[in-house]
Simulated scan of single mutants.
Amino acid sequence: MTILVTGATGNVGRQVVSRLVRAGRTVRAMTRRPQTGLLPHGVEVVQGDFERPDTWRAALDGAQSVYLFPFVYGAADNGFLDEAVKTGVTRFVVHSAAAAGFPPGTGGDGVLGRHLTEEREAHRGLELLVEATGAEWTHVRPGLLAVNALRWAHRIRTERVVREPYAGAGYPVVHEADVADVAVAALLTDDHIGAAQTVTGPAKVSQAEQVAAIGAAIGTQVRFEEIDPAEARTQWLRDGYDEETADWMIALLADAVDGTGALPPTDTCLRVTGRPPRTFAQWANDHAADFRPEVTR
C-alpha cells in the first residue's frame, strides 16, 4: 500500500515521511520543488502542486492513503480530493489546525477574533470537504507549533537577545514530531477513523521561558528584553510582516499572559501514542543548531 504525503518537505511532513519509512511502509512524497527536499532514502519523490491538476495523477496513482496538507485557504476547491477518490484513495489524514474546533466568537470581535474566525472557517471548511468524499478520515489539529520560535533564530545567533512584548505570554506549543506521531497513528491504524485530534504541548511555556530553554540548549545565556507592543509592532513591520499580521500577533500574545487563552493543553499525544508530549526544552535541544552562531554551526 502506497501512502502519499503531501507537504512532504514541511516541518511536519518530513517527520511523517521519516516515521512511515521506519515503519516499513511504501511512501510517496509530493512536493512542489523535489530538488529542495531532504527525505530518507527509498522514498519516491514526485513533483506535485495543488494548483496544477496535471501533476495530480502521478502523485496519486496507486495511493490508498493521503496525509493531506491544508492546500486551500477557504476550502473552495475540492478537485484534488475528487481526483484522489477516483484513483483509489480510501483514507485521508488531514493536517488541520486547533482553530477548526473553536466555537464561533472565540477571541472576541476584535483583530484576534477575526483572525481565529478566518482560521476556523478555512480549516474546518477543508475538513468538511474531506468528510464529504465518503472516504475514511482523521483530522489532526495542531495548536501553535514550537517551530514558530525559529523566527528568533537570527537575532539569537547574532545578538543573543530576543525583544518581544509580553514576556509572560505563552501557549502549550507543540513539537512537530508529536504532530507527526499522531498523524502516523491515524495513517497506520483504524483506531482514529472519524476523530478530530487537537494536539498541543504538555503545558504553557512563556516567551521568556522559551528563550531561556533555547539558551540552555546552545549553552549560552540568551536575554529576553520585554518591549512595548507598539515598539514590537514597528519592529515586525520592519522585519517584513504586514500590518494585519502584526496586529493579531500582538493580540494573540496579550490573550495568553495570565493563562493560555483559547488553547489549553490537551491529552491527545498521551492518549494516541501512550507517552506524554515532548517539552519545549526537548524541542530546543532538537533545534539547537538553528540558534548557534554561524561560526560554530
Rank of each mutant, 00 (worst) to 15 (best):
W236D: 07
L237D: 09
A230G: 10
D242Q: 05
G240C: 05
A246V: 02
A217R: 00
T234H: 11
P264Y: 10
I227T: 13
D258L: 05
M249W: 12
V257L: 02
V222G: 01
T268K: 06
T260G: 01
L263M: 14
T220G: 07
T245N: 09
R233E: 11
L263V: 06
V222D: 01
R271T: 11
E244C: 01
A213Q: 15
E243Y: 06
D242N: 15
R233H: 12
R238F: 07
G240Q: 05
D255S: 14
F224P: 04
T245R: 15
V257D: 03
D267E: 15
A256V: 05
E226G: 06
A254T: 03
A213K: 04
G259L: 02
Q221T: 14
A246R: 08
G240A: 04
D255Y: 02
D258R: 12
G240M: 04
G219T: 10
A232K: 07
M249Y: 12
A217Q: 01
L252P: 02
G259C: 00
E225C: 02
A217T: 07
E244I: 09
I214W: 00
T245V: 11
Q235V: 10
I218H: 01
R271S: 13
G215A: 08
L237E: 13
I250D: 13
A256D: 00
A256S: 15
G259Q: 03
G219M: 09
A230Y: 04
P265T: 06
E243T: 11
T266M: 06
I227R: 08
T266Y: 11
D255M: 03
Q235E: 14
T268W: 09
Q221G: 12
W248K: 05
R238Y: 05
L263E: 14
A230H: 11
I214R: 03
E244A: 12
D242I: 04
D242P: 03
V272Q: 06
T245L: 11
V211F: 01
Q221V: 14
I250M: 07
T245A: 13
Q221D: 15
A217Y: 00
D239I: 07
D228P: 03
G261M: 03
A213T: 06
R233I: 05
P229R: 07
C269E: 06
L253Q: 15
E231I: 11
V272P: 06
G261W: 00
D258V: 01
D255V: 00
A256M: 03
T220N: 11
A254K: 11
R223A: 12
F224T: 01
E225T: 06
T245W: 07
T234E: 15
W248G: 01
A262V: 08
G259M: 02
P229K: 08
M249V: 09
L237Y: 09
Y241W: 12
W248N: 04
E231Y: 04
A232P: 06
G215I: 10
Q235Y: 10
A246Q: 08
A251T: 02
E226F: 03
E244H: 14
A262Y: 09
V272F: 10
R271Y: 08
Y241H: 14
L253T: 01
W248F: 13
D239S: 10
D242H: 07
D258E: 15
L252W: 12
A213I: 05
E226Y: 06
R223V: 13
L270K: 15
D247K: 07
G259S: 10
I250G: 08
L270V: 11
A232Q: 13
